[in-house]
Every structure is written in C-alpha cells, then in structure tokens.
C-alpha cells in the first residue's frame, strides 16, 4: 500500500472557508502546480474545481481528470469544518491502460453497429426482392392463365 501511494505521487492542498489556499504539499509539480501561493483563490488555480464550491458541502471524487501537464489525476475533495482538502493521486498509468482497452472496445462496438446496420439493409433488400419475385410470379401466373384460356 505504501509503495502504491509513492507511485501515485500524492499531493494535497488545503483551502480555507473562502476557498483560498491555506496549505499545500506533496508532489504538486507532478500535476503542473508549481507556483501555488498562500492566499490565492482556488478557482483561479484549479479549473477542475469549477462547480465544487457551489451548493452542498458534500465530499467526493473526480476520477481521471486531465491536467495541463498531460497528467491524469484522481482528485479527491474532502470538506471538513475548517475548509476543503484537495488530494491528488496520479492516475496517468491507469488512464493509459484504460484508454487502450476503451479504444479497442469502442472500435469493436462501432464495427458491430455497422454490421448490424448492413444486415438490416440486406434484410430490407431481400424482402424487396422477395416481394418483387412474388409479384412477378403472380403476373406470370395470370399471363399463363390468359394464354391457356386463349388456346
């Protein structure tokens, strides 16, 4: 577990009741956060927190957030009586792995959808051909009846 945390470049930032930066630490540089300063308003620093400050003070997790430094982070936001803790965990490797899987899965699904579409078109075309054939057979039958009557 400890090793896992190390690999995931833990970083944190504590915001006061006015959502100004109060404390910070950990591997912030991993997330492209180099010039944090005490007293800065979080909204101007963390675009991904947009909306968190509105409404309920319910803690939560935003998974796989792409940050400007091309790193993906799991961003935990935890409210307590003094403010808000923002905890970053590196999720880049996980996102890379998931992206590969997701890409293949989605491409396969798109292909499946395309095949289904083509099958439906084929069925519709077959049905039209069958109808035409039936019409043709019926006309031939009528024609034959006329010809036979003539004889």
């Amino acid at each position: 577990m400890a090793l896992n945390f190390e690999k995931r470049s833990v970083a944190f930032c504590f915001l006061d009741q006015d959502y100004q930066i109060n404390r910070f630490g950990g591997s912030l540089e991993t997330y492209g956060l180099r010039d944090l300063q005490k007293g800065q308003h979080a909204e101007n620093v963390f675009p991904f927190l947009e909306g968190i400050f509105i409404g309920s003070r319910q803690s939560g997790l935003m998974r796989h957030v792409a940050l400007e430094s091309s790193v993906f982070a799991d961003v935990h936001y935890i409210f307590d009586e003094n403010g808000l803790w923002i905890v970053f965990l590196d999720a880049t490797q996980e996102v890379e792995r998931l992206t590969l899987m997701q890409q293949r899965g989605n491409e396969a699904n798109l292909l499946k959808e395309k095949i289904n579409q083509l099958n439906l078109q084929l069925e519709a075309a077959n049905s039209r051909i069958e109808n035409l054939q039936a019409e043709l057979d019926s006309r031939e039958k009528v024609d034959c009846e006329h010809t036979c009557e003539g004889k």
Partner: peptide, 12 residues
Amino acid sequence: KYLTTVGVKIDK
C-alpha cells in the same frame, strides 16, 4: 481519427 476519451478533459 477516432480517439476515445477516458475521464474528463477541461478546456476554456
């Protein structure tokens, strides 16, 4: 080229 998105990307 289709590239899937995993997670969320924020632009301004």
